[in-house]
Computed example of a mutant assay.
Amino acid sequence: MILDKIQNASLYINLHKGITKALEYIENTNFSTLENGKHIIDGDDVFAIVKEYQTKKIDENILEAHLKYIDVHYIIEGKEQIGITMFNNQKPTELYDEDNDFMLFNKPSDYITLHKGMFAVFFLMIFICQKLR
């Protein structure tokens, strides 16, 4: 996992071409002009999903993990609390859905907080997101 401010994105551009494209997109996009939904960056390989949603209580959320895609989260407004845990062969509560690239789990072990202008890169980790007011 990587956690940093978007101003430091240049430190990570050589890790993976998809991460480079995602971070460049974040740096060069005015998100206030984008509608919610999926935005193609590089075909099926790299895309952005812009979401706006209602806050849930942390215990109402579930953890998710991806096997196909690396997940890059960027906070446009406010702050968001994310529950995380390392993947250690836990049994999922919902088995892996290959078409939608996710599986679901319970109980995070740690929480991190992302503030406006921060990003996180999740490789194979289990995480949930909780928007903070």
Rank of each mutant, 00 (worst) to 15 (best):
N8R: 08
A65Q: 13
L11V: 06
Q7K: 14
T85I: 14
A22N: 11
L67K: 15
T55D: 01
I76Q: 00
T20S: 15
I6W: 10
I19R: 11
G117M: 06
I62S: 08
N28M: 03
D4S: 14
N89M: 05
L34N: 04
K17I: 14
A65G: 15
K5D: 13
D44N: 15
V46G: 00
P92R: 07
E64K: 09
K38W: 05
F119V: 11
M1C: 11
M118H: 07
V121K: 09
S32F: 04
S109D: 09
G43M: 08
M1V: 11
S10W: 12
H16A: 06
I6C: 07
N28L: 12
E94I: 14
H73L: 10
G83P: 00
D44A: 13
Y25M: 07
K79T: 02
E77T: 09
I2V: 10
G117F: 02
F123R: 10
S10L: 13
F119N: 08
D97P: 05
Q7N: 14
Y74I: 06
Y53D: 06
K116M: 03
K17F: 12
M125F: 14
I128W: 07
R133V: 10
P92T: 13
Q130D: 10
H39S: 10
F31S: 09
D44I: 08
V46M: 00
I58K: 11
V46I: 10
F123Y: 15
I40H: 02
D4T: 10
D59V: 01
H16E: 13
L95I: 11
A120H: 11
Q130C: 08
H73D: 05
D97E: 09
K79W: 00
